[in-house]
Amino acid sequence: MDNFEPEIVAFCCHYCGYTAADMAGTRRISYPSNVKIIRVPCTGKVDAIHLMKALEKGADGVYIAACLEGDCHFKDGNLRAVAHVEKIKKTLEDLGWEPERVAMMNFSAAMGQQFAQAAEEFTEKIKALGPSPASQATSKAV
């Protein structure tokens, strides 16, 4: 599993998470290319179904990058996202998966450095966990 390259999906809100990712780009701060970003208007829009779908399709880890708490552009969308993440963690536990495969993160638009660092740390964490049961199943199928 040394050369295991995890698949990671990051749902980023337009105003903070996605902007922070762009900021990392503007400043040329690199992070692992394992992280693929899907833009959403607000992380409150990220349905539990979307998180599960990503895991089912082959993501080894999924996270939500929202505004800092209290700074959500739509008041409390990021707090709702926390609830969705918690729910999925619970579901994963019930399924016998590691709940750490799902995470909630918060950034301000200016936190490009922190975004890159968090992407790196999350990738390392998922690397250590190894492939998710679903992605193991699909790679066997191929």
């Binding site: 990712a21 503007t26 290319s33 394992n34 970003i37």
Partner: peptide
């Protein structure tokens, strides 16, 4: 977003 979230942030790993 091929530029800000790819070309600019994965200089160290061109193949990936």
């Amino acid at each position: 977003n091929l530029r800000d979230q790819n070309a600019w942030v994965h200089n160290d790993a061109p193949a990936k």
